[in-house]
């Protein structure tokens, strides 16, 4: 455990809390992509299957349970809550996210640390998480005005994986740990946020509304 890793996980938790606060307080999920949320549920389920097979960890286990519970709750709200589901931008959340699942599954089948059910699914979840934000970024580009909570949510989501990259650099030098799969996927994932980060920081600096081209 190192400070980067702890900060990263707390940032990730914060992003989810921001999203839950937004949905619960504004009773609206406008600007949030349900497809991205669906993909995150898939990411957490396929990654945390080892919850009960591997020894429980005082740190990881609570986080895994919270991530699973919150991501499922968010999808439940957006699909079935009578008020919230009316505010879902169904017509602009158009990204074909099913086209993301198959390539990640095929890639996981061929590139994984060990050809076992758990490891292949774990690789699948790592690859899927790298691209899961795409529907959300596409939706933001078509949104006329992005509300602050949504902007902060996406920013924190991108920042958490960037912090994981720092954690991996630290672990490489301090603990000689090498992990190609999450490293490369994490780089791709963070790179996808690059232009969002640029516009987000620019809007924050000029104290103006966040607007993606």
């Amino acid at each position: 455990m190192n400070a980067f890793r702890l900060l990263a996980d707390l940032t990730h938790l914060l992003s989810i809390i921001i999203l839950l606060v937004k949905i619960r307080t504004t009773k609206s999920c406008a600007g949030i992509s349900l497809k991205t949320q669906d993909l995150y549920v898939l990411v957490f389920i396929s990654r945390y299957l080892d919850l009960f097979t591997r020894p429980l960890s005082l740190y990881n286990t609570p986080f895994k349970l919270v991530f699973l519970a919150t991501s499922i709750t968010i999808v439940y709200y957006m699909r079935y809550h009578k008020v919230v589901k009316q505010t879902y931008n169904k017509d602009s959340d158009t990204f074909k996210h099913y086209f993301l699942i198959l390539p990640c599954a095929v890639l996981a089948f061929f590139i994984n640390p060990k050809f076992t059910f758990i490891e292949v699914l774990w690789s699948f979840s790592i690859y899927l998480e790298a691209v899961a934000i795409l529907p959300q970024l596409v939706l933001l580009q078509s949104s006329s005005n992005i509300d602050n909570l949504t902007g902060n949510y996406v920013f924190m989501l991108g920042a958490y994986r960037a912090l994981y990259l720092l954690n991996w650099i630290y672990r490489f030098f301090a603990e000689d740990v090498v992990r190609w799969i999450p490293w490369i996927a994490g780089l791709v994932q963070t790179a996808l946020y690059a232009d969002f980060f640029y516009y987000y920081i620019k809007s924050w600096r000029n104290n103006e509304r966040l607007k993606l081209p």
Binding site: R54, N60, P113, K114, V177, R179
Partner: peptide
Amino acid sequence: ECLYQPKDEL
């Protein structure tokens, strides 16, 4: 294998 790592991260 060198790639096989215990999953100690989230």
